[in-house]
Amino acid sequence: MADTQRPLSPHLQIYKWQVQMVTSILHRATGIALAAGLFLVVWGLLALAAGPAAFAYFKNFVGSAPGIILLLGWSWSLFYHLCQGIRHLVQDAGVGYEIPQFVCSSWLAVLTSLVLVALVWAYALFVGGVA
């Protein structure tokens, strides 16, 4: 695969699984998922600009089973990437590098993202579903 002579760092199979490693991997995975999800946002805006028929088609997709599954995944990805992103911004400031803090903030980001996504979907269900 590699055509350069530069050294490669050891990869996943070398390390023992731990929470701060999983959160790091998930940050990347959710980032990639959100990149795809952004095109759904653009589709929604284009549909709203195009007219009632196009918007109805968009809402129909969003309200369908595959649409709901994608929305569930993307909404959690958004909150997870957001919480984890804040954690990384704090770490960029040089704070929270002690191992117990590192593990604790990992769990905190995961749990906060789950609480936020649960709140959003509870609200959506409370007002009568997504579409």
Partner: peptide, 30 residues
């Protein structure tokens, strides 16, 4: 980092915006 920090605010605003658009008709959404 700067786009990340801006998106923390805009991301939360966007979620609130989408939630406020639930169950309103086309003209109102527009």
């Amino acid at each position: 980092r700067v786009t990340a920090a801006v998106l923390v605010v805009l991301g939360l605003w966007f979620v609130a915006m989408v939630l406020s658009l639930l169950h309103i008709d086309f003209a109102t959404a527009r």
